[in-house]
Structure formats: structure tokens, C-alpha cells
Design a protein around this nucleic acid. Structure first.
Length: 568
RNA sequence: CGGGGUAUAGCGCAGCCUGGUAGCGCAACUGCUUUGGGAGCAGUGGGUCGGGAGUUCGAAUCUCUCUACCCCGACCA
């Protein structure tokens, strides 16, 4: 490709509304342009990268035995009524109507559509297992789209759905998909981790996420410093930090604590560690209010809380009036003594003794509190965020934290959708049986942003070789005037093209500094600079985008030198 | 959805308070010079000042209203 025959529009200045580096660089390099909130046009340059990512995904999915297909982006509302997921997805669903005012959703995911397809196509266990996938545009009406294509409303996703006679078969395919996902991200060239995850609105029994490690990631990944354990903070099991409950030593004392509301203020005022205090949080329950109790220095994990059967979903904290009704005090003084509601305590809290809590009387706290003697709870659950330094749940090492960008998520759905939509097969005994189902998503557009997030410097993008829009850039100095430079550049260009290398020759009439800055921004991995200066010595200059180190290579060997670099 | 903010040329901004026929930098176009690190000089094109309504002799500027976009929060595969 010659630049004069291509579309390159770069910007020197960082766009005002781009927060994270991948968004800034994608705009500056001209990979994407914004149309509206969370809506982006992919330029020909961006498209080249996107297609590289797509093709790697496609190859690995095919290799894993999945079958590519294409489903409609627009889905009838009735399908969603069958599974009752309209409420789960809520405002994220983009509802549309046709001229006859029939209701549709622009598909945010395709479990309903594939299950409908499969219930009509698959009738026998002999057709199982089977795994379908597509690469397609989705729409989710995010409350706050941001970070460019990292969290956009319209985006491209690879989604796969597998169907099985039994859970053993599902587990088998799930492992195959997990391996395929690892292969994909490795081939793209990114540093990632596979972690345990909450399955959210998609549902099902087990799920794992694939995270590209980057400081700008929106998720916190907890992992063992010595073992294999890794989980999204949302899901990460938090163990009890106290092995056995000690016996009570103190008596309960009521202390006047005026204007002392936060845990920090309470521990300062009473001169106790925050680890000796507890926080009582009141939330709406399925059957009356529920108190969730965590240690003073711990955070309530809202995903875990939301998943409790007794807690109303979505999770909602009681407001000040409701708190007054239940506890008889302001929010800063809630405690567990004589609290008339369902009380769920965190594992650590269950083993505490002589602790401090609110007195259910505004501006008063209780010290020397002990379970059974002074208060009782109805259940012990894991409801807090795991913290750095906690023992790893698998017993190996302690937890550390990293930021991650979720690029993939795989689920063992079980029969949630097949039962709701009556997707059944006849088994070997001739009996009707709901299929087991798995689903596997990967964000294609997000992967491009994640790649940049992990591979850039102050000059621009540094593409991993397998997804670079071009393999080699030829940058001739004074191409317009120097016949010798022009000939050398054209010759190399044609030679590399004949070898099937994706090469871009900058034949624009621009000054050298401009040209070099542009290609540093664009991040082409291998760059050759051809000028009279080096041609005098029969040399051509090579630069790797990774470290920008330059080498002088003889004209006679430049072609084989580049072939070697590209194949490395 | 709550709070805050912005909207003037492709991009980044000034002008608005105090109403008087729209400007700067970058980008683009032309010419000359320059050609190994985002050139210099001279010139050129491009804007219903987000939309609508109102006040006024006159509105980018004042008032009302609608819309879009951005940030924080809640929410979120």
C-alpha cells in the first residue's frame, strides 16, 4: 500500500474528551472516529487491525471445532419474554419498533436466538455436542459509555454457544473453549490472566473471565502470589481472618459517641483498632429488611450480597427514613444488639469477640459485644471484598491485586435457557431431555483497545506483530526529488510485496520528521528509512518500533533481513 | 437516573460579563524556499456561532426552551 492511495489522517494533539491512552492514540492515529456517545466509525486503518484480531479468533474457534454462523442483530421481543430476561438486562436493551409497531431489541447477546435456532434444528442426542459461533455487532445501551471502544454501546463481539446432552460434555467443551481463548490472546500477543468470575445477567453455574492486564483496567483481579488462584474481586472468595472465636472478656458498655459516625471516627474516638469494630448495613430483602455485617476495615462486596437468596435483587441500601424505622437511629449508629431483622454476618465477623458496634440509638455505640451472649445472627456468608494480603482461598500464598480489562468471558449455563425455551432432544432411551448449554463471549473491538493499552509509549502505538495494520513501513527521505531514493524505495516495496509482506510505502510529499512521527504514532513494527545519506554507503536503515534502536543494513541483505525479522 | 460542565471552521480555543455585521493556533489549499525529526515566508478557502422561540432598530452576546456531548456517582457481559 502506498500512503497516497490509502487514508491516513493523524492528529498531533490529544483529543480533549479522551481519558485513557488507548482512546487517545486510536483517535490520534485515526483508527476510529466518534459518531455519537459510544458509537464509533472504524477507518480503513482501524479496520485492518480489527480484521487481524477477527481472523485470529476465527482460526482458533474453527480449530476448536466451533461452527461459524450469523444471526440477526434485531431480535423479536417475544423471544426475550420466554426467558424473562428483559428485567435482568433492563435499560441496557435498546428497544425498537417496526412500522407495524411490533417490538424488537437490538441484540446485546444471543442466547435466546441461538436457543430458538437449536430447538428447531436439533432433535436428537446424535447431533450433540455442537458449538456455534458468530462475529457480529452488538448493542448495549450503557448508562455511561466511556473510554472510546473500551466501553462503547455498539461493539463487535465473538459469541459462541455450545449444546450438550449432559454436564460432562459441557465441561469438556468448556475446557476446550478455555484453551482456545488462551491461544487467541497469546497469538494476539497480550499479557492476560484467566480468572474466576460472577456470571451476572447471563446466569449459569460457573464462569471465568479473561483479563488483559493493564493499569487502566476497570476490574480488580485478585491472585495468589504463589499459587494458581485468580479471581475477579467481585467473585474472589474472602476467607475468615480469625480461625476460632475467643471467649468474651469484656462486658457490654454503652458509650456516648456524639457526632461519631464513620468507622474511622469510632475507632479514633474509642481508641480501638478498626479491626475490632463491625459495620452493620441495612438493605432491602425479599422478605423485609436484611442487615449485612462486615468488619470495620472491610468493604461489603455488592455482587456477593446481591447473590444472597434473602437479599432483594438488584441490591438496594435502605434510605435514612427506612433505617430509622428498622434500627431506630441514624445510619452512623446501627448495631446488631436487639436489631429486629434478618442478620447475615461475614465469616470473619462471626469469629469476632469483644467487638464494637452501633447501639441503635443515635450517637451511642456499644463496646465489649459478643455473639450469642449479646446478639445473634441468622446466617454466616462470604459477603466482603477480599483484600490484598488475605490468605489465598486455595491455601497457597496470599492475595495480590492487579487491574484487568475483561476481553473474554466463558460460562457454563446449564439448562437455564433450554428449559425456559423448551430446547430438548431425545436421549438414547428415547426420552425428552433439556440440553446443557455453554456460552463464550469475546470483545473484538475491546481487544484492539486493550492491545494498545498494554503496548504503547510516549510516541504512540507499538502493535504486537500479529495484529499490526502493516508489517513494514518504508520511509523514503526526499522521495519526490531524489531519483536514487525513489528507486531504492520502490524496489524494496515491490520485493516485499512479492513476498506477501504487508508493506506501506510513504510516498507523500512530507518532511522527514513529520513522516517518522506519523509512523511512530501508527506503530508499524518494522520501519526502514531510505535516504541519500545511507545509500552513499550502500546501506538502508532499519528501526524496530519496540525500542526504536536503528541498525544499518546493507542494501543487498535488507530484504532477507526483514523477512527474518517478520518471521521471528 | 442524580450532581456538575460544555456547545463558535475538520481539531483545540478566544470573543459573551458591558448587544453593533465573527477571530486566533493547528489542519487543509496555492506558490516560492527548505528536505534525516511534526519547516519558513507569502497568499487562499472554509462558520445557519447546537436547534427553536422571545426581548431589541440590531443577538454568538440578554431571556426562555429543547437537544447533543463530556465529567463524577449509582448501574453494568
Amino acid at each position: 500500500m502506498r500512503t497516497t492511495a490509502f487514508h491516513l489522517v493523524t492528529r498531533k494533539e490529544t483529543p480533549q474528551d479522551a481519558e485513557i491512552v488507548s482512546h487517545q492514540l486510536m483517535i490520534r492515529a485515526g483508527l476510529i472516529r466518534k459518531l455519537g456517545a459510544g458509537l464509533y466509525t472504524w477507518s480503513p486503518l482501524g479496520m485492518r487491525v480489527l480484521q487481524k484480531v477477527e481472523n485470529i479468533i476465527r482460526e482458533e474457534m474453527n480449530a476448536a471445532g466451533a461452527l461459524e454462523m450469523l444471526m440477526p442483530a434485531v431480535q423479536p421481543k417475544e423471544l426475550w419474554e420466554e426467558t424473562g430476561r428483559i428485567a435482568d438486562f433492563g435499560g441496557q436493551l435498546l428497544a425498537i419498533q417496526d412500522r407495524a409497531e411490533r417490538d424488537y431489541f437490538f441484540g446485546p447477546t444471543h442466547e435466546e436466538v441461538i436457543t430458538d435456532f437449536v430447538r428447531n434444528e436439533i432433535n436428537s442426542y446424535k447431533q450433540l455436542p455442537i458449538n456455534f459461533y458468530q462475529i457480529q455487532t452488538k448493542f448495549r445501551d450503557e448508562i455511561r459509555p466511556r473510554f472510546g471502544v473500551m466501553r462503547s454501546r455498539e461493539f463487535i463481539m465473538k459469541d459462541a454457544y455450545s449444546f450438550h446432552l449432559d454436564t460432562e460434555s459441557l465441561e469438556q467443551t468448556y475446557q476446550v473453549m478455555k484453551q482456545a481463548y488462551s491461544n487467541i490472546i497469546k497469538r494476539i500477543g497480550l499479557d492476560f490472566r484467566c480468572v474466576l468470575a460472577d456470571s451476572g445477567a447471563i446466569g449459569g453455574s460457573g464462569s471465568q473471565e479473561f483479563h488483559v492486564i493493564a493499569d487502566s483496567g476497570e476490574d480488580a483481579i485478585m491472585y495468589s502470589d504463589q499459587g494458581e488462584y485468580a479471581a475477579n474481586l467481585e467473585k474472589c472468595e474472602a476467607v475468615s481472618l480469625i480461625d476460632n472465636r475467643n471467649t468474651a472478656e469484656q462486658d457490654v458498655k454503652k458509650v456516648h459517641t456524639p457526632e461519631v459516625k464513620t468507622i474511622e471516627a469510632v475507632s479514633d474516638f474509642l481508641k480501638v483498632e478498626s479491626t475490632q469494630t463491625i459495620k452493620t448495613l441495612l438493605v432491602a430483602g425479599v422478605d423485609g429488611p436484611v442487615a449485612l455485617v462486615v468488619r470495620g476495615d472491610h468493604n461489603l462486596n455488592e455482587v456477593k450480597a446481591n447473590n444472597l437468596a434473602c437479599v432483594a435483587s438488584p441490591l438496594r441500601m435502605l434510605n435514612d427514613d427506612e433505617i430509622k424505622q428498622v434500627a431506630g437511629c441514624d445510619a452512623g449508629s446501627i448495631g446488631v444488639k436487639d436489631l429486629n431483622c434478618h442478620i447475615v454476618v461475614d465469616r470473619t465477623v462471626a469469629n469476632m469477640n469483644d467487638f464494637v458496634c452501633g447501639a441503635n440509638e443515635t450517637d451511642y455505640h456499644l463496646t465489649g459485644m459478643n455473639w450469642d451472649r449479646d446478639a445473634v445472627y441468622q446466617a454466616v456468608e462470604d459477603i466482603r471484598d477480599a483484600q490484598v494480603g488475605d490468605p489465598s482461598p486455595d491455601g497457597v500464598g496470599v492475595l495480590k491485586v492487579a487491574r484487568g480489562i475483561e476481553v473474554g468471558h466463558i460460562f457454563q449455563l446449564g439448562s437455564k435457557y433450554s428449559k425456559a425455551m423448551n430446547a430438548v432432544v431425545l436421549n438414547e432411551q428415547g426420552k425428552s431431555q433439556a440440553m446443557e448449554m455453554g456460552c463464550y463471549g469475546m470483545g473484538v473491538t475491546r481487544m484492539v483497545a486493550a492491545a494498545i493499552e498494554q503496548n504503547h509509549d510516549d510516541k504512540g502505538i507499538i502493535w504486537p506483530a500479529n495484529i499490526a495494520p502493516f508489517g513494514v513501513a518504508i520511509l523514503p527521505m526526499n522521495y519526490q526529488k531524489s531519483e536514487r531514493v525513489k528507486r531504492a524505495a520502490d524496489d524494496l516495496y515491490e520485493a516485499l510485496q512479492a513476498q506477501g509482506i504487508e508493506v506501506i510505502l510513504d510516498d507523500r510529499k512530507v518532511r522527514p520528521g513529520f513522516m517518522m512521527s506519523d509512523f511512530e504514532l501508527l506503530g508499524v513494527p518494522h520501519q526502514v528509512i531510505i535516504g541519500d545519506r545511507s545509500l552513499d554507503e550502500n546501506n538502508i536503515e532499519y528501526r524496530s518500533r519496540i525500542n526504536m534502536a536503528s541498525e544499518k543494513i546493507s542494501r543487498d541483505t535488507i530484504e532477507s533481513f526483514l523477512m527474518e525479522k517478520i518471521q521471528a
